[in-house]
Amino acid sequence: MGKAKKIRWTIYEIIMIVLAVAFIFPAWIVLTNSFKPLGEILSDTFGIPKSLFLDNFSYVLENMNYPRIFLNTVTICVCAIAVTVVLSAMCAYRLSRWNNKISKVILLVLMASMTVPFQSIMLPLVKICKNLNLTNSIPGLILILVPLYCPMAVFIYQGFIVSIPYEIEEAAQIDGCTRVQTFFKIIFPLLKPATSSIVVLFTLQMWNDFTLPMIMLQSAEKKTITTTVYAFFSSYSMRWDYALTSLTLSAVPMIIFFLFMQKYIISGIVAGSVKG
């Protein structure tokens, strides 16, 4: 009985591993085909590259202006996340400590806006940004990202702040801290678990965001990775070798990020899902 069961589990386990590998196979063939010349991609799509062919990468890195767009994407993510995290934490803290009708209404409106599809506000948003001279500008994009992402951050922070006892703040204030000092020296460090979940979750989302950077940034040297891939793919739709290499270059940074940050990403998803 025990032995038969063990064998059955082993078979089950092997099947599952095969399934999991098959599941990521589409990503795998894109990766491997980036190392093949076009002829080999068409004749031997699933094989392992016959030689380490790097011409695709040198061509795409240069033509996509990869270092530049990589830096743009990093700048946008870092700045927008930093501003969102600080402003959302402050707002969530004050609102949940206030705890009256006004604060409840503000929180409710913020929560409700999480359900609004971005495409519903997209057209007038571009209009407003044109009037404020914020289009085709990276700082402008950062400014718009903050309100789009803040409802989720406020939501996660607010659930966390409730569990911080008042006594800690009172003690700090007796010691002569102002409210602002109390927040930055005492409360904000205590929110670290929530902050780390928000940071990893937003990194993934902002890095992979496409619609907003596409409608906001037009010049090639200001584009992000996803919007450059879009432009690149349209002009190389017949050249799988270059097109696939651009996909590899855009996906690899976040896959590496994921493999190192897996634990935080998963706790972030769980924290963000417990709504309603």
Partner: peptide, 8 residues
Amino acid sequence: PNVISMLV
């Protein structure tokens, strides 16, 4: 696959 952009 979830960490790869929808567009990609």
